[in-house]
Amino acid sequence: MSGPALSITGLQAGLGELQILKGVDLEVPFGEVHALMGPNGSGKSTLCHVLMGKPEYHASGSARVGGTDVLGLPVDERARLGLFEAFQYPVEVPGVTLDDLMGEIAQAAGSGDGFGDRMAAAVAELGMDRFLERPVNEGLSGGEKKRSEIFQLMSMAPKVAILDEIDSGLDIDAVREVAAAVEAMRSPALGVLLITHYSRILRYVTPDRVHVMMAGRIVRSGGPELAEELEAKGYDAIAADLGIDLSEPEDDDGADFLAGL
């Protein structure tokens, strides 16, 4: 694989008048796992949805998945290009069993993709048997929903996996299990962006890089030790160090980021 798995430059995005991402630059090389951390409301899930192409967001800049700029493409095309988002809040699909959904995913992926084998392995590894005949995400506990997201991820084998708080709502054993699954997926064909609030999961997955998002920007990046620093000091201290006022409602220097493109 040449070039990074995911490469985001000057990404600005928002909803209507509301500007949420104010110039995001981020690169995840193939074979690496990056952690993205940041306070509530800083724009992490927005980044996920903008990358995946959720219709209501407007976006500018560029976001390349395996070298292809995905901004402007329909959601399903981005998925087929190898982008996977594990949702922070997986959506319930009443009346559709997980097995039905997996069948449709297999069909969309096309034959010869190896989907069936990967799915069978993932069913066994995650103990998904008992969820296959249940409606997608309906009536599942928080942790079970996350497990189902990981299951779909493992079956789909994307190029870029964005895991939005895959560890929230998981019990201690499940965090370890999910982390182990992520580590096991580490491969030269995959780049992972792991969004988390807790350094707990980072005990089991060692990120190559840690990025901190505040108010719609990546404000610091560093090695795994950055997560420990965050844990010890909290976001306020980091913000103060950087001279960022987290209570500041809007700023208008987004244009400077655009100009840099």
Binding site: D76, V91, E92, L101
Partner: peptide
Amino acid sequence: DAEQRYYLMSRGLDRAAADRLQVKGFFEE
């Protein structure tokens, strides 16, 4: 439902397949 459509399309289903699945699920109940 737009959220269901988005979720299903994020798994690679095109819009027609996503909507068909949602309709099927609707009646399944």
